[in-house]
Design a protein around this nucleic acid. Structure first.
Lengths: 153, 153
DNA sequence: ATATCTGCAAAGACTTTGCATGAGA
DNA sequence: TCTCATGCAAAGTCTTTGCAGATAT
C-alpha cells in the first residue's frame, strides 16, 4: 500500500539500534511529499490524516531523532516554531537556501548562484577551520528582507 | 554616574514616539559592555544587579522594540532561547558572523575572510533581488560543526 | 499634562519528561 | 523475547498579554 513518493528508509535505521516504525515512515513520507517547510504541528496534522493514532510527543521525539541521524534538518526562522525539511541528499529540492520576508515570514527557497556560493564557502571554510580548529560540517545561509507583496503595502 | 562604555542613545529615540528610559539605557549598556551573545534571561540578570526593580516583561518588551529599531539583532541558534547583540554599527565587534558548535552550543565570532564574503554577497544579493523581487536588507551566515574541545572527546 | 512605559500576575505557545503499554527485529 | 518506541498526561521553558500605577518629555 505504498503511495506516490514513499520510499524505504529501513537501511538508514539498520545497525544503529533504531527501528523503522509506522510513525517514522509517516513523518518521512510527509516531509518527502511537500515543498514547504513544516513545523512539528504541521507534520502532526498531516500524519494524523492517515494515521490518527499518532501523538504529538511521538512527532517531537522522532523529529529530534531524524535530525540526529541527519535525515532531516531543523530551521529556526525566528518566530516561534521550528521548521523541518529533508536533508539535501534525500530531497527533490536539492541544495538550496532561504530568502525570508521579515514582514510576513514567508520563506522562499532558492538554488541560484550556487557557483558564487561554492567559491566563497570553499575558501572561507578552509580558512575558518584552520584558524579556529573547527571541523565544519554544515552552513546556514539566509537572506532577509521584504518580499514583493509586502513592498507594495 | 556614567560607567565605562555607556553611551547616549537619546537621539535614536527622539522623533519616533519612543522615550529613553532607565530600563532601556540599562539593557543597551549591558549589551554594549559584553562580547557574549546574551539571552533575555542573561540580560535580566545583568541589569538586575544595578537596577533591581527591573521586570522580565520589560526586558522582553524592550528587546523587541530595539530589534524593530535595528539597534540590536536577535539570533536563534536553535536551542531554545534567543540571543541578542548590538547591531554591527553600534558594536565594537563590527561586522562578523558565527561559528556554532553542534555539540556544546558554543558560539565563536569571526570576522575573517570578509573579502570573499563581500564578493559572494554582492553578486548573490543582486541576482536574488532581481529574480525574486525581494528587497534584501540583511543576511545571516553561520558555519556549523564541532569545536576543538568537542573533537577531542 | 498626557501619552508612553513599567511591573506584577496570569496566560499562552511550543516542547520535553515520566511511565505503563504496545510493537519491531 | 526483549529492547526500543508509543501515547497519554503532566510538567517545563521561554515569551506574551492585561491592567493599574509610574514616568519621560
Amino acid at each position: 500500500m505504498r503511495r506516490h513518493g514513499q520510499r524505504h528508509w529501513g537501511g538508514e535505521f539498520k545497525g544503529c539500534g533504531y527501528r523503522m516504525t509506522k510513525p517514522r515512515q509517516a513523518i518521512l513520507d510527509v516531509l518527502g511529499e511537500t515543498d514547504e517547510h513544516l513545523s512539528a504541528e504541521d507534520i502532526y496534522q498531516a500524519v494524523y490524516k492517515f494515521y490518527p493514532n499518532i501523538g504529538m510527543t511521538t512527532v517531537y521525539r522522532n523529529l529530534e531523532l531524524l535530525v540526529d541521524m541527519s535525515l532531516i534538518v531543523r530551521f529556526d526562522f525566528g518566530h516561534g516554531r521550528a521548521k523541518y525539511e529533508l536533508t539535501d541528499q534525500y530531497s527533490e529540492k536539492g541544495h538550496h537556501h532561504h530568502l525570508v520576508c521579515k514582514k510576513c515570514n514567508k520563506v522562499i527557497d532558492y538554488s541560484d548562484f550556487m557557483n558564487d556560493e561554492v567559491k566563497f564557502l570553499k575558501s572561507t571554510e578552509k580558512g575558518l577551520s584552520e584558524i579556529y580548529k573547527f571541523r565544519i560540517t554544515d552552513h546556514l545561509i539566509q537572506f532577509l528582507g521584504i518580499c514583493e507583496e509586502c513592498s507594495k503595502k
